[in-house]
Design a protein around this nucleic acid. Structure first.
Lengths: 213, 213
DNA sequence: GACTGTGAAGCCATTCACAGCT
DNA sequence: AGCTGTGAATGGCTTCACAGTC
């Protein structure tokens, strides 16, 4: 309940627990134990309890956790009890795929603007929004009070886009380019790098074959 | 140099270093210090040296690291000094975007098969490969000796696809569905969950506004 | 003088083990 | 009896600080 300095790993797991609970709720399950959650998401029961303990006491000793109430609590903790406005910069293949991904909307993320620097893209419709030139980024972010920006441009353009998002007053950036971004420290940044993930796989595959040392 | 039990965080950073070095090399830079790398990728110099020390001595005291030689060494460590064959299951928006992503090929990952269960997709060309029915997964994986599978199907189908990949003899899976997969322990799995990443952002944004404590 | 490589220290996250409820 | 909540113990990663080398 003291709530400061929460491990990032804990926050990530909470997000995973929330989806497990959403699923369980949909299946009509009323009560789960830390062991049930643990098994469902592949961690230890103690880990589940410890993660939750950072934020309060949500269970009943001897019984377990009420699925729908815990689900709501975790959503609240993660800040998902409201809608978040999102802009996406880079309407290439990946950007278009993300813009159309329904999973975001269902969890409260609404992409209200998609931007690109290619005039051939301008005006193209993408899941309800129209692709706009980057020059309009500032105006849209400020007019709508957008807080989250997603970057799906090639590596070479990523820093410049991050600068523009920062200047427009965005508060958080999810970066899909394989590039470390430099932004003011008030902005929260996370990077998702596909190649890094593939390369962790090949490293581990190599360990098995090169029993060399 | 004993090299066992390498922290996963180290492996992920090596991948990031390798891209920094690739970039530096392209700019004609011959020597970098741990401080240069650290600054470029946003970690501490000591961290860079420690990460490299797990695998050997690659630098020259008083001087630094030779960019192209260190780059090659890291590629070797990560298992990138060879080509990796990849199949991708799920030719939806995200799968199509990934299949066309040139960054994979340039780092040695060749997607040689794309599979789907929608007959309307069969035969459609995607960046050189033709989309095939899932029933052919086994045959292609075994004939070509494919080692890596990428899952880009909706959550509901992910476990079934993982089972098929496992049965076909795949060695590693990169999972983009928001679902924890159950696979035999010989298979290396990593999951990339977009919502988790967004939700870590909203959690952090919430901390700033709820100055509650 | 500059920078690497590394044992030791410090810090943070996970697991253990049990007291506390129901 | 069963399961949560939690202090204590453990384990692992990161930082420090300096000896070693060019």
């Amino acid at each position: 309940m003291k709530a400061f300095k929460i491990p990032e790993a804990t926050v990530m797991r909470l997000s995973v627990y929330s989806r497990f609970l959403e699923q369980a709720d949909r299946h009509g399950i009323i009560i789960v134990s830390s062991g049930d959650i643990a098994e469902g998401v592949g961690v230890s029961p103690a880990q589940v309890r410890k993660d939750l303990a950072y934020f309060g006491e949500f269970g009943t000793r001897g019984v377990g956790y009420n699925v729908s109430s815990l689900y709501q609590q975790i959503r609240r903790i993660l800040g998902l009890n409201r809608e978040w406005l999102v802009v996406l910069v880079g309407a290439g293949k990946l950007g278009s795929a993300l813009a159309r991904y329904q999973g975001f909307l269902s969890r409260g993320f609404r992409i209200i603007g998609v931007f690109d620097n290619d005039p051939k893209q301008f005006g193209r419709k993408l899941n309800g929004t129209t692709i706009m030139p980057i020059s309009q980024l500032d105006e849209v972010v400020q007019r709508e009070g957008v807080e989250i920006g997603i970057i799906t441009v090639p590596a070479g353009a990523a820093q410049e886009v991050a600068d523009r998002l920062a200047a427009a007053g965005i508060k958080a950036i999810l970066n899909f380019s394989p590039r470390v971004l430099n932004v003011p420290s008030r902005i929260v940044v996370r990077s998702v790098d596909f190649s890094v993930n593939l390369e962790v796989l090949t490293f581990n595959l190599g360990l098995n074959t090169n029993k060399g040392l």
